[in-house]
Write a protein that binds this DNA or RNA. Sequence first.
DNA 1: ATTTTACACTTTTTCGATATTATTCGGCCA
DNA 2: TGGCCGAATAATATCGAAAAAGTGTAAAAT
Lengths: 245, 245
Amino acid sequence: MASDVIWPHGLQHGGKRPGSPTLVQATYDSMREDILSGRLQPGTKLRAEALKERYNVGASTLREALNLLVGEALVASEGQKGFRVTPMSEADFRDIVRVRKMLETQALRESFELGDDDWEAEVVAAFHRLSRIEERVSDDPAGLSGEWEERNRAFHAALISACPSRWLHHFIGILFHQSERYRRIAFSQSQGPVKRRDVHAEHEAIYEAAIARDVAQACALTEQHIDRTLSFLSDGGAFHQFGAQ
Amino acid sequence: MASDVIWPHGLQHGGKRPGSPTLVQATYDSMREDILSGRLQPGTKLRAEALKERYNVGASTLREALNLLVGEALVASEGQKGFRVTPMSEADFRDIVRVRKMLETQALRESFELGDDDWEAEVVAAFHRLSRIEERVSDDPAGLSGEWEERNRAFHAALISACPSRWLHHFIGILFHQSERYRRIAFSQSQGPVKRRDVHAEHEAIYEAAIARDVAQACALTEQHIDRTLSFLSDGGAFHQFGAQ
DNA sequence: ATTTTACACTTTTTCGATATTATTCGGCCA
DNA sequence: TGGCCGAATAATATCGAAAAAGTGTAAAAT
């Protein structure tokens, strides 16, 4: 049956695939987390020997994981010259933001149109979970950020979960991870006091528009929400680091 | 530099990547062609031994190619139970068509806005090449179809080539290949006299709208063009084969 | 008759070694 | 000095075999 198809990337499930305790998968997951977090910096050459040791795997297992990451554009393969972490640039991020706005608002429209009571309940639950951690996140930003990432992802996933388009979910998932990389790397490397941004208020506004089924409002707010990540990083001067490679 | 990044999939270059005469690439290309053409049927289990022999490669080379295809969603990986050719379904194709229309019209808008004289010249050239083969294609449909595929792809690529969004190109490329699989498989397996469809007229109309820089018209025609593939396959009863697996 | 268990067999996954290709470095010549 | 060729070195790409996991069958037990 077609519904059994395993989709390579997506926003539904949080990283782990249904049944796949293979070494390749584990390596892929660790490596992706290392790239997203910036532990493996943009543009870094990925030498086989070093990575084999780092992840405790053999040569082909490693390369398989690498090739999976190529599909998500987190790693670039360069002919016979090995792999490297996909470089980042301001232009790339602007592009991601533009396309992401388009896809996510479309998914939102379809989701609002088709979402039933169960969908609404999911959204309520996801927003609740996110709110709870956003109350506490100012106390312990470092310790809770991993969990916040997850609940933030879950909230955005819930909003569009009633959209039936597999392909929209697929592409949105890819772009979401890309954005996450920019956000996390820029955030961790920004020095000095960071101008606070009331993300929770933005989430709340989107949430209320969702419950009211106000499509236009929800789309507008979502676009702002995505845009603000860009101007936030841009204003914070986070893009300087991407100049040289 | 960011512009040196190699994008895994896309509509620009026709299959072959810049400099990559690696075995993995060759295997990936052959295998993709086999899937697109239907020689490897949807849902088929991909057994390592058989494929090693078929493509004359070792186990890890094969798996690397397989993992690359997973990124394009032409192959699905199932836990520890191997790989299989991604199944097809009418619902999936409808989804592809919907999303493709959205992305391609957006790319068209951006391309029209930014395209200069060089872009126009490219479009003219690509249309000319396509027209020439479409004149001859009724004589020898089988022999020329490969070349037609290529020129058709090139024409559509030229239309949107002035759109600067890498990500749009990336996603459009994936969906284009997916559509191609549906079209080719449905077409090759449809029996009996096929209702002829004047594809050339559709291309010509789009071409003229492009030269006139009539965005609205070009988008509308492109949507029709993409839609017609769907209704063409649907009317031809080509979807029956996707019921059972 | 149905479920359970054990076993043999098939297929996938993983590893380490080898072959191939890039890169670096030093000497040579203009 | 500066550029170019070729050997030495380093890194990647590929292979084939060993290990792990899944699958099916048939006898034993309920």
